[in-house]
Amino acid sequence: MELKKIMFYPGCTLKGVAKNLEDSTVESARVLGYDFIELPGWTCCGAVYGLAQDSVKFTIANVRNLIRAQEYAEKIRDNRLVAVCSMCYNNLRRAHLDVMKNRDKLQTLDLFMDEEPDYKGEINVQHYLTFLKEEGFDKIAENVKKPLKGLKVAPYYGCLLLRPDEVAIDDREDPHILEELLEILGAEVVDYPLKNECCGSYHTVDKKEFVAERTFKLVSVAKEVGADIITTSCPLCFFNLDKRQEIAKKKHSGFEHMPIVYFTQLMAIAFGINDDKVLHFEQHYVSPREVLSRWL
């Protein structure tokens, strides 16, 4: 079967400590018939978007990325740019919407990058989940070889897939897209009330105790509602929920570790991929191997 070429924006973290996210994304897409091609010439998205009215510095790199995508889109005749990291998705999409709404800003940026072609505004930035849903979840169902039957999963969206409103991939207070996918994979989805609450984000650099408290709450409640595992799509959420359990455990006696996985890893496993070179469990602080042993 010939694979359909799709532009894929990996982002910095996927090229290093989140190989588990990158490889499981690319491999799960391959199973479904897509060749995820790394966007040629991409640069860092900047991770956070500028909120000041006069801010342009956080937009420029993203618009440059969109111009790269614009060029490549013509070659493959598909204007979709898929990101899987929540922050990358959020930044690229916001930048696109921002310059479409504020044409003056786009003009400033086009002038500043005078050796680049102008951005025409035709790139459709999509999160992997949205891409999958649009292509049809039934495709996924057809490829499930090892249904995750009995695995109790807490779906965790975090912030940047749902907020602010203009970039939300689903209802911001009661999203279901991840639940839908997990159910197709055969997993048992728990009603996880904190699925759209922040993990503490970049405070993990200078205020890791705060983030550890968030992790403590997010993991404890997941446990209280019966989850075995939490799944996410953001490498920062992943790092915070996974690694910061170390501090949480030191501070709260009785706290029990819970493994964190990317939804793409669950997809890969359900598709029958049991390859360390794709799953990279060595990149997890809390190993998911035991909880997932039945399907490995």
Binding site: C85, Y202, P235, L236, F239
Partner: peptide
């Protein structure tokens, strides 16, 4: 130990 995403955003 910190991922690039954390450092850049911070």
């Amino acid at each position: 130990e910190l991922p690039p995403i954390a450092l850049v955003s911070n």
